[in-house]
Design a protein around this nucleic acid. Structure first.
Length: 635
RNA sequence: GCCGAUGUGGCUCAGGGGUAGAGCAGCUCACUCGUAAUGAGCAGGUCGUCGGUUCGAAUCCGACCAUCGGCUCCA
């Protein structure tokens, strides 16, 4: 039979040759590093025989699929160790995830950190024994009987949910057999370096209605050095944590007195205000008007908007003069009242109304996370009221705007399209149509996107922009939501060419998403070293001795005149000490002034990343920094 | 909200049934210094909160609160 390799070369083998032997015939190194094979597009165990002509690729840890198989195999080893140490445990699922794997177990007692150490030890023994992973295929009825007998309820449930005509397979290594479609690495000896990272509760099938299982997270690598490097990267990421940097740089704080309600300090406010100024400029350019609507509004408004039925659990309520009021969780009903406050002509549309609106949402206490998930936040919201014929262009316009914004900060992002959720308002047809419009716009822009079934807002489907934090977790920031419901519910109209009233279409959208969350992401992205235009302090003047205080004062005054945010470190300390502190505060420019500078009207410039840049005339420094700020340079 | 862990001065952390300890930061004094920590002294905490056990609790037990890692949810 003929085997075609990825480079196009063709080799001849006897039918029935094991894939592993084919790998070995190509090179020893490939045989050592290959984890699975891709045969005509399907992943197959290396131990499997090849029976006819095929395209074959051998995958190693370098390939995403190879990596997943490696991690998934490690999950099986962990499950075996758990079976040995904790007899009677029931097994749920154990997939590979982005940086490792997990396995969910139903146990009598939760695992303790000490248990993890024991499980790791046991896993080491299993890896050392180099047990082969053996595949077996079996009939559905046999599989059901087997797992029922073993008391593995979750496996039984999994089998029952699989289509009746699909073939089932199991993998066994040592004493552990698991329902699994595979493939796996050839033997446990491949799984050289692993570490169990944490235990956590996780609901069976991700639903809080189900039982909570014990999930163990772990990761694995073919080499110890790779594991060490990964762990080191994790440590580095923790150093970027916005909660840590936020405290160190005195940007914000969160107190027991207000869980999930962040306090912004003076330096955090500078950052916020810069972002908001930028936001206002950009929106003005693009034909947006700014509005502001109240935080507390009557309950009847929320009943009309559907929030009472669909969002009540996330809302805060209060009473005013015996009347029921709600604290707004979204800005749209307020914006709609402004739209409705007078008649609109088709000539005015689209109307783009932006609002930096403070919303409050009751988030579960366990979900709170620094600035990333809070209970009150400022949405950089906007509502666009338009003619049905304007929908596509408006969506494309917003997508372009999102991209323009993220480019300024150097963010990369993932785009997701979320469709009709279970508890949604409106007909299937309207949803179909709205989802189609969003999809068309994405495709017209040629954007790659992922579909999130059932993740839309209750009033419409949406396009979301997700940004990454320092640990690679993604957070939704920008969103574009197409809404045919609110215009109906509030009987919104415009007067058309024909003099009749017509129904406008609405878009809800954000770019930062929440200013708070955006600041969190921004902080981690730059590790606190914000570009000069955002930096709370753009320059700090460091006089060498108190003989130079007067000149330093002059430098500060001059910079302030130019609108530059500047501080002076007048303390009676050595220059090294002052530099160390300014560096720790990630201040973009340190201006050392001593006798020489005072004499020449100069400053000795040190940049936080580029180091000592030597002395230049003060005016030249001012011009340079001014330019850097104006250009919003990312350095 | 659920599972697990944690909670000691502003920060990082030690200690642990007999009424609290270090480093850094702060303050004072001396040094007047050229690109990442000068030295000395002083001050600072009812050990998250409330209750229980005990002659005695920061230490043991319970409840609650908050934080951290997940699940769920979402900007």
């Amino acid at each position: 039979m003929k085997v075609t390799l990825p480079d196009g070369s063709v080799r001849e083998y006897q039918a029935g040759t094991a894939l592993m032997d084919i790998a070995r015939s190509i090179s020893q190194r490939l045989a050592r590093e290959a984890l699975v094979a891709r045969v005509d597009g399907r992943l197959v165990d290396l131990g499997a025989p090849l029976n006819s002509d095929a395209n074959v690729a051998f995958l190693t840890f370098e390939d995403d699929e190879g990596k997943q198989v490696f991690r998934h195999s490690t999950a099986h080893v962990m499950a075996e160790a758990v079976q040995k140490l904790f007899p009677g445990v029931k097994f749920a699922i154990g997939p590979a995830i982005a940086d490792g794997f997990y396995y969910d177990f139903d146990t009598k007692e939760p695992f303790s950190p000490e248990d993890l150490a024991k499980i790791e030890k046991e896993m080491e023994a299993i890896v050392k024994a180099d047990l082969p992973f053996e595949r077996s295929e079996l009939a559905r009825a046999d599989a059901l009987a087997k797992f029922e007998e073993a008391g593995q309820d979750y496996k039984v449930e999994l089998i029952e949910d699989l289509p009746a005509d699909v073939g089932l397979s199991c993998y066994r290594q040592g004493d552990f057999t698991d329902l699994c479609m595979g493939p796996h690495v050839p033997s446990t000896g491949r799984l050289k370096s692993f570490k169990l990272m944490s235990v956590a509760g996780a609901y069976w099938r991700g639903s809080e209605k189900n039982k909570m299982l014990q999930r163990i997270y772990g990761t694995s690598f073919p080499k110890k050095s790779m594991l060490d490097e990964y762990l080191f990267r994790l440590e580095e990421a923790k150093r970027r944590d916005h909660r840590k940097i936020g405290a160190e740089l005195d940007l914000f704080s969160i107190h027991d007195e207000g869980p999930g309600f962040p306090f912004f300090h003076p330096k955090g406010m500078i950052l916020r205000n810069e972002l908001e100024d930028f936001w206002r400029q950009e929106h003005k350019k693009r034909g947006y008007q700014e509005i502001r609507t109240p935080i507390i509004l009557n309950r009847t408004l929320w009943e009309q908007s559907g929030h009472w039925d669909h969002y009540r659990d996330n809302m805060y309520f209060t009473k005013i003069d015996e009347g029921d009021f709600a604290v707004k969780p979204m800005n749209c009903p307020g914006g709609i009242l402004i739209y409705k406050s007078r008649l609109h002509s088709y000539r005015e549309l689209p109307i783009r109304m932006g609002e930096l609106g403070l919303v409050h949402r009751h988030e579960l206490s366990g979900a709170l996370h620094g600035l990333m998930r809070v209970r009150c936040f400022t949405q950089d919201d906007a509502h666009i009221f338009m003619l049905p014929s304007q929908v596509k262009d408006e969506i494309i316009g917003v997508i372009n705007m999102e991209e323009d914004f993220y480019k300024v900060f150097g963010f990369s992002y993932q785009v997701e399209l979320s469709t009709r959720p279970e508890k949604a308002m409106g007909s299937e047809e309207t949803w179909e149509k709205a989802t189609g419009e969003l999809r068309d716009a994405l495709e017209a822009r040629g954007l790659a996107y992922k579909v999130n079934e059932g993740d839309g807002a209750f009033y419409g489907p949406k396009i979301d922009f997700h940004l990454k934090d320092s640990l690679g977790r993604t957070w939704q920031c920008g969103t574009i939501q197409l809404d045919f419901q609110m215009p109906e519910l509030f009987d919104l109209t415009y007067v058309g060419e024909d003099g009749q009233k017509h129904r406008p279409v609405m878009i809800h959208r954000t770019i930062f998403g929440s200013i708070e969350r955006f600041i969190g992401i921004l902080t981690e992205h730059f590790a606190g070293a914000f570009p000069a235009w955002l930096a709370p302090v753009q320059a700090r003047v460091l006089p060498i001795t108190d003989r130079h205080l007067a000149y330093a004062r002059k430098v500060v005054d001059s910079l302030e005149q130019k609108g530059i945010r500047v501080e002076m470190d007048a303390r009676n300390e050595k220059i090294n000490y002052k530099i160390r502190e300014a560096q720790a505060q990630k201040i973009p420019y340190m201006l050392v002034v001593g006798d020489k500078e005072a004499e020449q009207g100069a400053v000795a410039v040190r940049h936080r990343a580029r180091g000592d840049l030597g002395a230049i005339p003060l005016s030249e420094f001012e011009d340079n920094l001014w330019r850097e700020i104006k250009e919003k340079a990312n350095s």
